[in-house]
Design a protein around this nucleic acid. Sequence first.
DNA 1: TAGGCGTGGTT
DNA 2: TAACCAAGCCT
Length: 292
Amino acid sequence: MSSPYAAPIVGWYQRNARDLPWRRPDASPWSILVSEIMLQQTQVARVLPAHAAWLERWPTPRALADATPGDAVRQWGRLGYPRRAIRLHATAGELVAKHNGQVPSDAATLAQLPGVGSYTAAAVASFAFGQREPVLDTNVRRVLGRLIAGEATPRQATSAAERRMAEQLLPQDGRQAARWSVAVMELGALICSATSPNCQQCPVADRCRWKQAGSPPAPPHRPGVRYQGTDRQCRGALLAVLRATPGAVTPDDLAAAWPEAEQRTRSLASLAADGLVAELPDGSLTLPTASA
DNA sequence: TAGGCGTGGTT
DNA sequence: TAACCAAGCCT
């Protein structure tokens, strides 16, 4: 083990880890990639059924690439951030076109896929292929931030110091590095949570700088962003109509879902720019049926 | 780099 | 109950 934290945290993980489909030994890289995309800003409990249904329908990248982007958006359902469905479909196409239908094993190649950023690239390289990559998600950042820096919550942007710290803590062996990363993530999800950490159950509470400092609260952050009445809500309402309707919908159908015309028009344009909506020659709207 | 981007569970 | 939060990405 490469740090005094590894043994207690990995040991805790082996006793307390949830049994999740994408963690099973027989999980394919594709299954793991799909899970990582779905888990972006989305709770595990909501991802579980969506992931199972997605893999049942599209067990391989090639299967998804043969579907339309609209199929992907419909299957995505109400998971949120439907651009993820469009980008996952586009990724499937790239895997077929450039990677022989396979998920690449190195983080740099993964990071070039649409919808795959630094976190997801590292997670797939590590969890699916045992590559030695630091996996820095919000859980890891919070756990290490508390444990070592003594701060309640991470800053908004990942700092170079955080990357150095994650790198230094990472075991040398790739498989052990993956086990360490998933263990820290799980600790952050189950014990060292954002709002109500359960330090009584924490395997490293005796060496946590944040706890030693008396668990000081996080500094106040910027006023929360509203949702009611935003373009986001409008986009969601319009897309819900499109998902629920086989074939095309009329502009009147959309007007019924969101009466405010100016905002509706603007949101529809942004959905089209994202490749989430297509306009037919007769002026009706559909989910995209070909590559955007 | 700050802000936009969905949806639902939790407190 | 109105925030807050949830395995981020992109521009």
